[in-house]
């Protein structure tokens, strides 16, 4: 544990810790905020944190972007994380838009995009349905 106070160790790991803070901010928004759009933004932050972890692991000190040049001694950063994250970003925006489309539909049905209000309306609808059922089949529900 005392390694944390070593300057070289701390500087070398600082961006992993910052990425953890970023990821936890995203997680906090997803868990604690009721607004559905904000939850999507929180998920995006979480995603950006994962991207950062991958890209920072691929970085080599003194390396350059993995586009070949004539100098044979040139050091290149690891191209594999770049490929994985590049596709993940585009897939991420496609799935984000799917989530946004769901939010738009939820707003059209419930008239709100706050989680607790949606739940409230759901409970009321369920209660109304149960009352309706009790009115139609009083004998069966009483037996149950």
């Amino acid at each position: 544990m005392e390694r944390i106070f070593d300057a070289e160790f701390a500087l070398g790991h600082m961006n992993y810790w910052l990425f953890v803070i970023l990821m936890m901010t995203g997680l906090y928004i997803v868990v604690a905020r009721g607004n559905l759009l904000k939850k999507i933004v929180g998920l995006n932050l979480f995603q950006v944190a994962v991207f950062m972890l991958y890209i920072s692991m691929g970085k080599i000190a003194g390396g350059t972007a993995p586009i070949l040049i004539d100098n044979p001694d040139q050091l290149y950063s690891n191209p594999l994380p770049h490929v994985l994250i590049l596709t993940a970003i585009v897939v991420g925006v496609a799935t984000t838009s799917l989530g946004l489309a769901l939010i738009v539909r939820i707003n059209e049905t419930y008239g709100t995009i706050e989680e607790d209000e949606v739940l409230e309306i759901d409970h009321q609808m369920y209660a109304a349905e149960v009352a309706e059922m009790n009115k139609n089949k009083p004998v069966k529900t009483d037996a149950a």
């Binding site: 585009v90 496609a94 838009s97 946004l100 489309a101 738009v104």
Partner: peptide
Amino acid sequence: TVFAVMLAIYYAFAGR
């Protein structure tokens, strides 16, 4: 595919 999907998503959101 990426071009068409992005444009289709834009149409879907803006067309409402």
